[in-house]
Amino acid sequence: MSESPVIAFLNKMTDLILLNLMWLITCLPIVTIGAATTAMYYTNIISIRQGDGYVVKRYFKSFRDNFKQATILWLLVLLLGGIMAFDLFYWYTLGTMLGKVMFCLSAVVAFFMFIILLYVFPVLAKFDNCMKSTIKTAAAFAVGYLPYTAILTVITILFIYFNVVSIVMNAISLFAGFAVLAYVKSFFLYKVFMNHMDERYDDFYSDQEE
Rank of each mutant, 00 (worst) to 15 (best):
M1W: 01
E3V: 08
F9H: 12
F9P: 06
F9W: 10
K12Y: 05
T14E: 10
L16V: 04
L18K: 12
M22P: 00
W23A: 14
I25C: 10
I25K: 11
C27Y: 00
C27L: 13
V31A: 11
T37I: 07
Y42M: 09
Y42G: 05
I46G: 09
S47N: 08
I48D: 09
Q50E: 15
G51N: 11
D52L: 12
D52I: 04
G53M: 10
G53A: 07
Y54H: 13
Y54W: 11
K57T: 11
K57H: 08
Y59W: 13
F60E: 09
F60V: 10
F60M: 10
K61P: 07
R64Y: 11
D65S: 14
N66C: 13
N66V: 02
A70K: 05
T71N: 01
L73D: 01
L75G: 10
L76M: 06
L78S: 01
L79H: 00
G81K: 11
G81N: 11
G81Y: 08
I83R: 02
A85D: 14
D87P: 07
L88K: 03
F89V: 07
W91Q: 04
Y92G: 09
T93R: 12
L94G: 03
G95Y: 05
T96K: 10
L98M: 13
G99N: 02
G99Y: 04
G99E: 02
V101H: 06
M102I: 05
C104G: 13
C104W: 00
S106T: 11
A110V: 05
F111I: 05
F112T: 12
F112E: 07
I115A: 03
Y119M: 04
V120W: 11
F121L: 03
P122K: 09
P122T: 03
F127R: 06
D128I: 15
N129T: 15
N129S: 08
N129P: 03
N129C: 00
M131L: 15
I135G: 04
I135S: 02
A138H: 08
A139G: 06
A140E: 07
F141W: 01
A142E: 09
A142Y: 01
A142Q: 01
V143N: 05
L146Q: 06
Y148T: 07
I151Y: 07
L152E: 03
L152T: 04
T153A: 03
T153S: 07
I155A: 12
T156L: 01
I157T: 02
I157E: 00
I157V: 15
F159N: 12
I160L: 14
F162P: 00
F162C: 12
V164W: 01
V165T: 13
V165H: 07
V165D: 08
S166V: 01
S166K: 07
I167V: 15
L174Q: 12
F175L: 15
F175P: 03
A176Q: 04
A176K: 07
G177D: 14
A179K: 12
V180T: 06
V184T: 14
V184M: 14
K185E: 12
K185G: 09
K185C: 09
K185S: 02
K185F: 03
L189D: 08
Y190M: 15
F193T: 00
F193G: 07
M194A: 10
M194T: 12
N195I: 00
N195H: 11
M197V: 15
D198L: 12
E199M: 14
F204M: 14
Y205W: 09
D207F: 04
